[in-house]
Design a protein around this nucleic acid. Structure first.
Lengths: 234, 234
DNA sequence: TAATATTTTTAGAGTGGTCTAAACCATCTA
DNA sequence: TAGATGGTTTAGACCACTCTAAAAATATTA
C-alpha cells in the first residue's frame, strides 16, 4: 500500500516532468511538495526501491512506467474531484484545488467510477487540465504554450490556467480569464507585465507571475470553439 | 492539529460511551479501532495530555467536553457523507459506511456546509443514526432498545441498524429491514435466533449477531410514521 | 481470603517520515 | 584548470504510531 505522502511525491514528479521533461531535480521536488531537499533524497530512495522512480545520484529522478500510472491515478482523482465540486457542489473555479488535494488520496475505485459517471466522463477539469482516462493510459503531449511566450498583437485562446496558487486564480477569475477565453496581447511591459484585451474589450494588466500561469494556443481564424486537445481541423 | 488516527480513537470512545456509558475499557477501544491494548494505552496518554480524554489507570477512559466535540464533528462528517453518497451518488444503503470512514477526516468545513445544504440539513443518516448539528451540541439520549430485548408478539419499529458490519447490512437490506420498518416478533429460538414478520407478511429468521444490530422502539398504535427521534405524541 | 485468571500497563524495539548540519559533487567562472 | 558556488547526499537525531513480551494491577472463584 502506498501512503498519501508517496502519492504526493509521485504527483509532483509527474507534473515537473510534464513541464520540463525528465530528469527532475531534488530541489524542484522539494519546492513542490514543501519538504527539505534532504527529505526528498531519502524519499526518492524508498520510491526507487519500490520501483516507482528511476534515479541517478546527483543528477535527478524520473518516474518508471509504474510510477507514472500511480501519478495518473492520483491526477485523475484530483481532476474528477475538481469537476465534481464545481459542477455539483457549487464551488467556484478558484476554490476546488485545495479540497481536491485533501480528498484525492482517499476515494475508492467505486467512488471514482460514480463521480465520473455523474459527470459524464469529462476530459478536462475546470482549469483546463486534461483528466487521465479510467485505464490510466499516458496523456498526450500538450500543445499549449505559456502566454508570456507570445508576441504583442497575437490573438490566443486560453487552454489552461495553473491551479497552483489560489490568489492568482481568484484574480484571473475576476478578470474573466478562464479556459476557452480569447485574448489579444496588447502590450508587454518591462518586468514581464502583460496587458491583454478580453473578448468584451476589457483590458487587463497581469504581473508576470500571473501571466505565467496561463497556457494558450493560437486562436483559430474562424472562431473554432473546440475544447482543449480537440481542435477541429479540416 | 489532530491526526486522523486520533480522530478514530475519539470516535470509537464516543460510540462505546454511548452504548455502555463511561468509563470505557482499554480493550473495548482496542477491539473497535483494531489495535493492541498496549497501543491504546499509549494513545490514551497522549490524548489525555491534549485534554481530550480523562482517564484513571487500570479503570478506563472518558471523553472530556473538548474530546466529545471532536468526536461529534467526525461523526457529523461521517453521517453527512453517508447521506450524500446514498442520495446523490446512488450508493446502496449497505455500501456507504466504508467510503465515509475514509473521507470523514479529510473534508473541509466548507465541504461540510455545502454537503449539508445539498441535503437540506438532514438529521439522521441512512442507517437511522442521528447526525450531530453544525454547532456540535451533544446528541440527546437514544430511546431505542436492541431488538433482542423485546418479547415475542410485540410490534416494533426499526430506529437504527448498526453500520458496523457490511455483510449484516446487506443481509438486512435484502430482508427489507431498514429504519422505519415495522416488525412483529414471531419467535425467539435458542441461541438468540429471532424470527420477525415484516410489513408485507414475509418472515425472516435472524441470527443473534444480526438481530443485535437492530435498534427499535415500540410501534405506535395508530401507525405513526414519524422519523426517528421525532415521535408525534398527543 | 488465597489462588487464579484476566486486564492493563510498562519496557523496549521498530517503521515511516521528517529535520538540521556537515560532507560531497558538479558546474560555472576567473 | 582551480577555486568558488550551489545543489545533493549522508549522518544522526527526533516524533508519531505501532508492536511483542513481561510485569503489575484488578477481578473472579474456590
Amino acid at each position: 500500500m502506498l501512503s498519501d505522502v508517496m502519492e504526493d511525491y509521485l504527483k509532483a514528479i509527474y507534473q515537473l516532468q510534464a513541464r520540463t521533461g525528465p530528469p527532475v531535480s531534488t530541489s524542484a521536488i522539494a519546492d513542490t511538495v514543501g519538504k527539505t531537499p534532504a527529505t526528498v533524497t531519502s524519499m526518492l530512495e524508498t520510491l526507487e526501491e519500490r520501483g516507482l522512480v528511476a534515479r541517478e545520484k546527483y543528477k535527478g529522478a524520473e518516474l518508471t512506467a509504474e510510477g507514472e500510472t500511480v501519478a495518473l491515478e492520483v491526477l485523475r482523482h484530483h481532476r474528477l474531484l475538481e469537476c465534481y465540486l464545481a459542477e455539483h457542489l457549487d464551488y467556484a473555479w478558484s476554490e476546488v484545488h485545495e479540497e481536491a488535494d485533501a480528498l484525492e488520496h482517499h476515494i475508492s475505485e467505486e467512488f471514482e467510477r460514480r463521480v465520473a459517471a455523474a459527470l459524464d466522463d469529462p476530459v478536462v477539469d475546470p482549469h483546463g487540465d486534461p483528466i487521465p482516462s479510467a485505464d490510466l493510459s499516458p496523456l498526450d503531449e500538450d500543445d499549449a504554450t505559456p502566454l508570456t511566450a507570445h508576441d504583442v498583437g497575437s490573438r490566443v485562446v486560453v487552454s489552461r490556467v495553473s491551479d497552483r496558487d489560489r490568489e492568482e486564480l481568484e484574480y484571473l477569475a475576476d478578470a474573466g480569464v478562464t479556459p476557452g477565453t480569447v485574448l489579444e496581447i496588447v502590450d508587454i511591459a518591462p518586468f514581464g507585465m502583460v496587458t491583454v484585451r478580453t473578448e468584451d474589450e476589457a483590458e487587463q494588466s497581469l504581473p508576470e507571475s500571473v501571466a505565467d500561469a496561463i497556457s494558450v494556443r493560437p486562436a483559430a481564424e474562424a472562431g473554432a470553439a473546440a475544447g482543449p486537445g480537440e481542435v477541429t481541423d479540416a
